[in-house]
Amino acid sequence: MSEERIQSEKMAIFLKGLWKENPVFVMLLGMCPTLAVTNSVTNALVMGVATMAVLTLSNILVSSLRKLIPAQVRIATYILIIATFVTVADYAIKAASLEVHKALGAFIALIVVNCIILGRAEAFASKNSVGKAALDGLGMGLGFTFALFLLGAVREVLGNGSFLGMPLFGERFQPVTLMILPGGAFFVLGAYLLLFNWLKKRKAEKEEEKIVFFTGEESI
């Protein structure tokens, strides 16, 4: 019984990053890479996976050192830990594909100052066990990757007429170039926020209707 509860608690830690506390759409953290590297699906995915790796590893290390790090210098320590893993990720991507590394440019190094990672280290990893911190890092990282993928997919399909580099439409497709330019990033993210707000509102309205319906029946 209690084991089941632990299991479901772990699941909840993992899942909350995906949707309920999605770092990009709900908490509006890590905006810089979200907007800058989502001009194609490949870039978005590489960036998402790199961030997820750094997030998980730094969460694990911060969590396992949480009793050793003095409170006064904790932020500096977190930043050093994160910077170490980002350097590793930077060199790993460079070794795997020079082309992608060039496309992402300085934004891989800029994972260091991604507020999501420092935020999770401070808010979650420094207070929880290693296993939970790892799950939290994976969940948040997946949520971030998912958000980047959604943005990248819209921008690449509309702005370049392709998906993962493969052309989708015939010769006659006229791409909306604005979508892969900086302005498009703001518009697409704004549109997603609009969509999610609308969904949330509709859900709330439906629930309200339900309550009205129930109370109405009772009075009869």
Binding site: G183, F187, N197
Partner: peptide, 16 residues
């Protein structure tokens, strides 16, 4: 539905 971050991002897009 656009209140808050939504409209800010739209404005930023136009500025960009």
């Amino acid at each position: 539905v656009l209140k808050g971050a939504g409209i800010t991002l739209m404005v930023a897009g136009i500025l960009s």
